[in-house]
Design a protein around this nucleic acid. Structure first.
Length: 527
DNA sequence: CCGTCCCGCCATTCG
DNA sequence: CGAATGGCGGGACGG
């Protein structure tokens, strides 16, 4: 009986893993920015050490094991994994990863490896090459990926959603929220058009892997999660907010919240753990009107600028093709680098659509009235954007190769398909996943659901005084005024890339000590 | 008690 | 059909 219980701790007497408590220590250290901030680091070390010695004392019986739950955390596991690869591998080397090898070397069930791979894959740090194999890319594509994710995130209106949500949650708590009064504000589900996996030029889902599972959870959830960080004002995101947003997008409305929410959060923890191992985020605490709650702060690269030139051109093109509908997808350096070869994506697109169409026929889930005619009202925006990008890339390509980046491995252009007659870019047939990747990136948009009634929503209000918890700094009393906590991003730890100059335009009350505090303990705050 | 999140059953897909 | 993938959530652990 009881076949559903998690095995009890340390009963099984077989091969004990070789991990030592120091491994945990290591991850903690690496979790903190290794460079600067020695003070914090040391403190962390001390605390950790203390922690362990204590544990050591307890687990005296059997001079081994101490299989503390943490010793098997995804984070540690991921850290172990990352340790064996370079951040910027030589693309010519053999960067193959064997699932079996990794699983055995790390001493874990394959299931766990999948978890890690999925999120790494979402950042294009690896890509599945074949059945039990992945290819390691490290951080070579990270910048580019983040750039795209941020862009997509903006297009999705995530920043807006977050703002609203924060506000709503804050009010909810504040105003006793005794009962009722919850529901009719479902009208938030606007902007977002539910996107799926975002691909990159050189790393489409190879290995003839499914196209149907492509939109499944973890990978996509991970990307969305990252998008939230890249778009959030103060670069802080709490799990409940993230979950809230990510849920809203998934399955059509009627989400049986509560449980759904719980599960979502559980997943986010997994993702957060590997992102932490990657040192892209850090755990922090935000103090709201009603107590503090855990959250994560982005500590990874901020401005991952791609190529500089053609920026203007890019912007203009986009605007034109995008038509009136998007007045707000601001002018940002639009394009990613030209790494782009032929337009294999078009072929792929065709193939993909072909494939999907097949599935669509058997998937009656679409609530849309499949108005073949007026597909244009809803998500023309995104489509147009993509088209624009595609065109841009082509133009760029035509106007001569860009001598900036190293020669990218030209996409092998599968000779399998001779001359794809399919007219490129016909995603106009809406429905699920239509791969559009003018070599830039491919986004999968879902079926239409709401009119393009992009209600701007009064931006007047904003987060209820949100403060980053700090041992010494207590919640500011009078703090509450409405106003987006301004970007106090003054001294972000020097990102390995470049720090963004605070877009200080909003002169609002801006205190909020951006600096997460590790481990809950009176850690002497730096000076 | 509650925030985390490990473990592994078992549904899906792939091959 | 068996193997590869990876949802999913019970309930254990740590504070």
């Amino acid at each position: 009986m009881g076949p559903l219980t998690t095995p009890k701790k340390g009963v099984e007497g077989h091969c004990v893993d070789p991990w030592t408590p120091t491994s945990n220590l290591k991850i903690l250290i690496s979790a903190a920015s290794p460079d600067i901030r020695n003070r914090e680091k040391e403190l962390t070390v001390e605390e950790a050490a203390e922690e362990y010695s204590k544990q050591d004392a307890e687990e005296v019986e059997e001079g081994e094991r101490m299989t503390s739950r943490k010793d098997k955390s995804l984070g540690l596991l991921c850290h172990k994994f990352l340790e064996r690869f370079e951040d910027f591998p030589d693309p010519h080397k053999d960067n193959d990863i064997s699932l079996d090898d990794v699983a055995s070397e790390l001493n874990v069930e394959r299931r766990r490896i999948y978890d890690i791979m999925n999120v790494l894959e979402s950042l294009h740090m690896v890509s599945r090459s074949a059945k039990n194999h992945y290819t390691w890319h490290g951080r070579t594509k990270l910048s580019q990926t983040l750039f795209v994710l941020k862009k997509v995130g903006e297009e999705q209106g995530y920043h807006r959603q977050m703002r609203q949500l924060r506000l709503r949650l804050a009010e909810e708590e504040e105003r006793r929220s005794g009962g009722g009064a919850e529901a009719q504000d479902k009208e938030n589900r606007e902007g977002s058009k539910e996107l799926f996996f975002v691909e990159l030029p050189g790393v489409e889902f190879r290995a003839a892997s499914v196209n149907s599972r492509k939109d499944k959870s973890l990978r996509v959830m991970s990307q969305k999660f990252v998008m939230l960080f890249l778009v959030a004002r103060p670069r802080v995101v709490s799990l409940d907010i993230a979950a809230q947003i990510l849920i809203g997008e998934d399955q059509g409305e009627a989400s049986l919240d509560k449980n759904k929410f719980k599960t979502k959060v559980r997943r986010l923890y997994d993702i957060a753990n590997v992102l932490r191992s990657l040192k892209l985020i850090e755990k922090v605490h935000v103090t709201e009107e009603r107590g503090r709650k855990p959250a994560f702060e982005w500590v990874g690269p901020e401005e991952f600028t791609q190529i500089k030139d053609t920026e203007v051109k890019a912007v203009e093109n986009t605007k034109v093709l995008t038509s009136r509908s998007s007045k707000e997808n601001c002018a940002k350096n639009l394009f990613s680098n030209k790494r782009f070869t032929r337009h294999p994506s078009l072929m792929k697109l065709a193939k993909s659509i072909e494939e999907d169409r097949r599935k669509i026929n058997s998937a009656p889930s679409s609530p849309a009235k499949s108005a073949a005619g007026d597909v244009s009202v809803d998500f023309p925006n995104k489509m147009a954007q993509l088209a624009a990008i595609c065109k841009l890339q082509l133009d760029h390509e035509a106007s001569g190769p860009k001598p900036s980046e190293p020669a990218r491995t030209p996409i092998p252009l599968t000779p399998a398909t001779p001359a794809t007659p399919v007219t490129p870019l016909i995603p106009v047939l809406l429905q699920q996943q239509q791969a559009v990747g003018g070599g830039a990136y491919a986004v999968y948009v879902p079926p239409p659901q709401l009119r393009a009634a992009a209600r701007p929503q009064p931006t007047s209000l904003a987060v209820r005084s949100m403060t980053f918890d700090s041992p010494t700094a207590l919640k500011r009393p009078g703090a509450e005024e409405t106003a987006e906590s301004s970007p106090s991003k003054a001294q972000r730890r020097e990102t390995s890339f470049r720090d963004v100059s605070p877009k200080l335009g909003e002169i609002l009350q801006a205190r909020l000590k951006s600096r997460g505090v590790h481990l809950p303990s009176r850690a002497a705050p730096r000076a």
